[in-house]
């Protein structure tokens, strides 16, 4: 009687415990899967945001092509182009200035030639004045007036020579300054273009790299989103597990009901069953095969 009751209690407790465990497991699975699913959804949302931010950065750099906008890189390219355009204009103007300076140089040569002619005229005049003075001297008293005129002519010739020398000095100084200007303007005209070429190359390569990176990032974002969606779909195993656990609970409940029925039946047995009468205090456990099959 004592061991039978203990066994009965033990089985009853075990069945109840298993039922409780199943219910806890069911809740744990449902809860865990719900949390995993929501985490994955959040993960996907954050990835999407990250992707949008990356695209925004790319748009700033690359420009919104669809709307005909220009981005930072295109602007940089424009700056390089404008810089080159200005550089070429400065060079063309400088070369034109050099042309003008060379023309001025030709004019100066002409001025110098004319000065040479003035100087030789002055020296001829001086020579004539000298001859006139000699002739005047030879004429004596009669030539006095003529001598004064000859001296005056000589003095004019000397003035012409001196002016001519002054002009020559000024023109030579101007020629020197002109030559210096020509050198300076020549330098102004001459700029190496390789720096601009390199700048343009870098801008274009940055644009190309950005395009490739953008495409790569977009590609992997699409891939990750697909995987998250697939993972979330895979998490739907929760339904199946819950159903299985529900089925197990139902089956357990049926077993428990059977067991209670059996216990009730065994308790009523001593009165109706002669076979059990012999040993009423030591019922099923070891010798009742029906108990073992349950």
């Amino acid at each position: 009687m004592n061991s039978s009751e203990t066994l009965s209690q033990l089985v009853g407790q075990t069945l109840t415990g298993v039922a409780e465990d199943l219910s806890v497991a069911r809740l744990a699975v449902r809860d865990g899967v719900a949390r995993l699913t929501s985490n994955f959804y959040e993960f996907r949302e954050r990835l999407k945001l990250q992707g949008e931010e990356l695209h925004a950065v790319a748009r700033t750099l690359e420009g919104d092509k669809a709307n005909g906008g220009t981005g930072f890189i295109q602007d940089m390219n424009g700056i390089v182009s404008r810089f080159v355009e200005d550089l070429v204009m400065v060079s063309a103007s400088s070369v034109r200035l050099v042309q003008r300076v060379d023309e001025m140089g030709l004019d100066i040569e002409q001025v110098m030639r004319n000065l040479g002619r003035i100087e030789s005229l002055a020296s001829e005049t001086r020579f004539i004045a000298l001859n006139a003075r000699i002739e005047a001297h030879r004429a004596g008293e009669v030539g006095m007036t003529f001598r004064v005129v000859a001296d005056e002519v000589k003095s004019l010739a000397d003035d012409a020579s001196s002016f001519s020398a002054q002009i020559r000095g000024l023109v030579e100084r101007t020629e020197g300054r002109l030559f210096e200007s020509r050198l300076t303007v020549g330098k102004l005209a001459s700029h190496d273009m390789n720096g601009a070429l390199e700048a343009q190359r870098q801008v274009l390569s940055a644009l190309e790299q950005l395009g490739a990176t953008n495409a790569r990032v977009s590609g992997s974002l699409v891939e990750v989103e697909k995987q998250v969606t697939e993972t979330v779909r895979a998490l739907q195993f929760e339904d199946m597990v819950t159903q299985l656990l529900d089925a197990a609970s139902r089956r357990l409940e049926a077993v428990r009901a059977l067991w209670l029925e059996w216990v009730a039946h065994a308790a009523a047995a001593p009165a109706s069953n002669p076979h059990v009468d012999d040993a009423p205090t030591a019922p099923p456990a070891d010798d009742n095969p029906a108990e073992r099959t349950i």
Partner: peptide, 12 residues
């Protein structure tokens, strides 16, 4: 090799 002065000469 050409530099900007060459471009200037061509423009003129």
């Amino acid at each position: 090799y050409i530099d900007s002065s060459a471009l200037g000469m061509l423009l003129l």
